[in-house]
Simulated scan of single mutants.
Amino acid sequence: MADIWRDLRSGLDWLDSGADPADVLWDWRFGFETHWGRHATHALHALHAAGVSS
Protein backbone atom coordinates (compact mmCIF):
# COMPACT_ATOMS: atom_id res chain seq x y z
CA MET A 1 0.00 0.00 0.00
CA ALA A 2 2.88 2.36 0.74
CA ASP A 3 4.28 2.01 -2.79
CA ILE A 4 0.88 2.83 -4.26
CA TRP A 5 0.51 5.87 -2.01
CA ARG A 6 4.00 7.15 -2.84
CA ASP A 7 3.32 7.00 -6.58
CA LEU A 8 -0.09 8.64 -6.28
CA ARG A 9 1.14 11.26 -3.81
CA SER A 10 3.96 12.32 -6.10
CA GLY A 11 1.41 12.90 -8.87
CA LEU A 12 -0.76 14.97 -6.55
CA ASP A 13 2.26 17.04 -5.55
CA TRP A 14 3.11 17.47 -9.21
CA LEU A 15 -0.44 18.72 -9.89
CA ASP A 16 -0.18 21.16 -6.97
CA SER A 17 2.96 22.59 -8.53
CA GLY A 18 1.12 23.34 -11.77
CA ALA A 19 1.88 20.29 -13.88
CA ASP A 20 -0.31 19.43 -16.83
CA PRO A 21 -2.92 16.89 -15.65
CA ALA A 22 -2.35 14.85 -18.82
CA ASP A 23 1.29 14.39 -17.81
CA VAL A 24 0.31 13.27 -14.33
CA LEU A 25 -2.26 10.83 -15.69
CA TRP A 26 0.35 9.42 -18.07
CA ASP A 27 2.76 8.94 -15.17
CA TRP A 28 0.10 7.28 -13.00
CA ARG A 29 -0.90 4.94 -15.81
CA PHE A 30 2.71 4.04 -16.53
CA GLY A 31 3.31 3.37 -12.82
CA PHE A 32 0.14 1.29 -12.60
CA GLU A 33 1.09 -0.82 -15.59
CA THR A 34 4.73 -1.30 -14.61
CA HIS A 35 4.83 -1.25 -10.83
CA TRP A 36 2.05 -0.58 -8.39
CA GLY A 37 -0.78 -2.25 -10.28
CA ARG A 38 0.54 -5.60 -9.07
CA HIS A 39 0.62 -4.29 -5.51
CA ALA A 40 -2.98 -3.10 -5.81
CA THR A 41 -4.27 -6.41 -7.14
CA HIS A 42 -2.34 -8.36 -4.50
CA ALA A 43 -3.77 -6.14 -1.76
CA LEU A 44 -7.30 -6.66 -3.07
CA HIS A 45 -6.73 -10.41 -3.22
CA ALA A 46 -5.47 -10.44 0.39
CA LEU A 47 -8.48 -8.43 1.59
CA HIS A 48 -10.86 -10.70 -0.29
CA ALA A 49 -9.22 -13.83 1.07
CA ALA A 50 -9.45 -12.43 4.59
CA GLY A 51 -13.18 -11.81 4.13
CA VAL A 52 -12.91 -8.03 4.50
CA SER A 53 -15.84 -6.25 2.90
CA SER A 54 -17.56 -2.91 3.17
Rank of each mutant, 00 (worst) to 15 (best):
A2Y: 09
A2W: 05
A2C: 03
D3W: 07
D3I: 09
D3A: 11
I4H: 03
W5A: 00
W5S: 02
W5Y: 12
W5C: 00
W5T: 06
W5H: 01
R6L: 00
R6S: 09
D7C: 01
D7A: 13
L8P: 04
R9K: 13
R9T: 09
R9A: 05
R9L: 10
S10A: 11
S10H: 07
S10T: 09
S10V: 11
G11H: 05
L12M: 00
D13E: 08
D13F: 10
W14R: 13
W14G: 00
W14L: 12
W14K: 14
L15N: 04
L15K: 01
S17D: 13
S17L: 03
S17W: 07
S17H: 13
S17A: 06
S17V: 13
G18W: 01
G18H: 03
G18C: 10
G18E: 02
A19H: 06
A19F: 04
A19V: 01
D20C: 01
D20P: 04
D20R: 10
D20Q: 00
A22R: 13
A22V: 09
A22Q: 12
D23G: 06
V24T: 01
V24C: 06
L25I: 04
L25R: 05
W26F: 06
W26R: 14
W26L: 14
D27V: 06
D27S: 10
D27G: 01
W28L: 12
W28A: 13
R29Q: 15
F30S: 12
G31K: 01
G31E: 00
F32I: 15
F32N: 07
F32A: 14
F32M: 02
F32H: 03
E33W: 01
T34N: 13
T34S: 10
T34A: 10
H35W: 07
H35R: 12
H35L: 11
W36L: 13
W36E: 10
W36S: 06
W36Q: 05
G37D: 09
G37V: 07
G37F: 09
G37K: 11
R38D: 03
H39F: 04
H39R: 01
H39M: 13
H39S: 09
A40H: 11
A40S: 11
A40E: 11
A40R: 03
A40K: 03
T41V: 11
T41M: 04
T41L: 05
T41Y: 00
T41F: 09
H42V: 15
H42P: 02
H42M: 07
H42G: 09
A43Y: 02
A43R: 08
A43D: 08
A43M: 14
L44N: 08
L44D: 15
H45F: 12
H45W: 06
H45E: 04
H45D: 12
A46C: 03
A46L: 11
H48C: 05
H48L: 15
A49L: 14
A49C: 04
A50C: 04
A50K: 06
G51S: 15
G51P: 04
G51K: 06
G51I: 12
G51M: 02
V52M: 14
V52S: 08
V52A: 04
S53M: 09
S54L: 15
S54T: 04
S54Q: 14
S54E: 13
